[in-house]
Design a protein around this nucleic acid. Structure first.
Length: 466
RNA sequence: GUCCUCGUCGUCUAGAGGCCCAGGACAGAGGCCUUUCACGCCUCCGACGCGAGUUCGAAUCUCGCCGAGGACACCA
């Protein structure tokens, strides 16, 4: 049997992190087992969905690198099918029409508060055998009254619930639209879904759905309910993929890796490429207990992924961020060289860009603390002399830069730091940067000399003031 | 309120009766490396929710308690 799983989000306008993980788990499960991963859009709630919201789903999955198989199923396009199935179940006595209004039901519920089993529909219309001309009505599922509903969850193990605690849930609403509970089963059946992997907030729904499968004479798929991700604070903005991607400078694999390890594990392994995840992932490794989202660990995992990602791939992710900072950079050898250096030290993509800015832009000001600590009466001469040495050199590589540095510090018997720090301030604006040779090299000879002279002038001006 | 599920360091987790006076990772503390800032490396801190059983032996099995999350919508 070929494994077929699905991801079935409703278009809410953003991809919640929990949803993203459900998508990832399903995708990994499919790829691991050589099966198929299909996408279904649950847009039966007319009032809420927009096309832009559907596009967010596509974009997010693509960014995460989760490709889906076959056409995308839209529930809104399958209304007739749901009606056919509902009619069939009514005809077989497995479902029935109900004319109880929402208001009536709410009143009954309120009256039954504090009594046992008040949550269940009282069955007013269960045996009325109402026909299609009974006026505005819903269609309810006729749930068995006795016995125990049970299934073996791939993650949570054996789960059971008394039918007495299950409701005659609504399949078709008054407006003719199917409810989630109903559409899911009809669609999963149509798509020949073999395994349903979703959040454990669906555990209780599963009993309803299995009852439906049975009423339809069909074999239910296997279910696996993954734990929830707790601690996604809404105060920090919408806990969506988009938000974390931008705020944390995330690489897709940084997110994927972190999210996969939250609620799933493979021994002591922490860092996975996508191929490694596909190889290692299986539903048996998924945890039962809910997990807490931890920003620090996400940051760390993302950082580790940046360390092992090729400069070429990094370039694709970093170029748009440069653009958003008003700097146009092009793919190529120079950028790759820069990224190879930056990826070793940066914590995230935003930092790579921010800390690379000096390569493309001269400092607009000098960091006060850095200047205070590293500039003195000698700085003007030191910087100018170093600029002279660079100017005199005919080549531009590590050796020539190194020679220029030594030619300045050796006669004066200075330690490297005494020259390197003022140079950093001159080139970057602050006394923090990559190795001094690289910093100089990336700025380029002419620009370097220009910045050194400008900083020398500045050093002179503050000396004059003092 | 009713029902369902879960419970190992602050956090993510390893652990499927002896390998565990519990291992790894993040965070925290300290140190090393070093021309700066980072990276990296090393050390330390730190948990089996509680109580009964079962067993020669329990983090691992059973029960109770407590705690956490979820479902109870003509939302998905």
């Amino acid at each position: 049997m070929t494994v077929r799983v699905r991801f079935a989000p409703s278009p809410t306008g953003f991809m919640h992190l929990g949803n993203a993980r459900t998508a990832l788990f399903n995708w990994l499960f499919a790829r691991h087992h050589g099966g198929e991963f299909v996408l279904r859009i649950e847009d039966t709630d007319r009032t809420r969905h927009t096309e832009a919201a559907v596009q967010v789903i596509y974009d997010t999955l693509k960014w995460m690198g989760l490709d889906w198989d076959g056409p995308v199923l839209r529930q809104s396009e399958r209304i007739d099918i749901y009606h056919q199935v509902a009619e069939k179940l009514i005809a077989e006595g497995k479902a029935y029409r109900c004319v109880c209004t929402k208001e009536e039901l709410e009143a009954k519920k309120a009256a039954m508060k504090d009594t046992a089993h008040h949550a269940c529909y009282d069955g007013t219309c269960r045996d009325k055998n109402l026909g299609p001309d009974c006026g505005p009505h819903v269609v309810r599922f006729r749930m068995p009254k006795e016995g125990v509903s049970m299934f073996d969850d791939m993650v949570q193990g054996h789960i059971e619930k008394n039918y007495a605690d299950l409701d005659d849930f609504i399949m078709v609403r008054t407006d003719g639209m199917p409810t989630y509970q109903f559409a899911v089963v009809v669609d999963d059946l149509a798509l020949k879904i073999t395994h349903v992997i979703r959040g454990c907030d669906h555990i209780d729904n599963t009993h309803d759905q299995i009852a439906l499968y049975k009423a339809l004479g069909a074999e239910p798929p296997k279910f696996g309910h993954a734990p929830r991700i707790l601690g996604l604070s809404k105060r920090k903005g919408s806990p969506s993929v988009e938000y974390y991607r931008e705020a944390f400078g995330l690489l897709p694999q940084g997110l994927n890796n972190y999210i996969a390890r939250l609620g799933w594990s493979h021994g002591d392994d922490e860092i996975f490429t996508m191929d490694e995840l596909v190889k290692a992932f299986d539903i048996t490794g998924v945890n039962q207990a809910n997990g807490n989202f931890d920003e620090d660990k996400l940051k760390w995992v993302n950082e580790q992924q940046i360390h092992i990602t090729s400069a070429d791939v990094l370039a694709d992710h970093v170029i748009p961020i440069f653009a958003s900072r008003g700097v146009n950079v092009e793919k190529g050898e120079f950028l790759n060289k820069l990224l190879e250096m930056m990826r070793e030290r940066a914590h995230n993509l935003n930092e790579i860009v921010d800390q690379s800015m000096f390569v493309f832009k001269a400092p607009e000001s000098y960091d006060e603390k850095s200047v205070k600590k590293n500039f003195n009466a000698d700085t003007e001469n030191l910087l100018n002399e170093f600029a002279d040495k660079l100017e005199a050199s005919s080549t531009w590589d590590n050796d020539s830069i190194d020679k220029a540095i030594k030619d300045v510090i050796e006669p004066r018997e200075l330690k490297l730091g005494k020259l390197a720090q003022p140079i950093r301030i001159a080139l970057v604006g602050i006394a923090q940067s990559p190795g001094i040779h690289e910093t100089i090299w990336f700025v380029g000879k002419d620009e370097c000399i220009r910045r050194l002279r400008a900083a020398a002038k500045y050093a002179a001006s503050i000396q004059a003031q003092a």
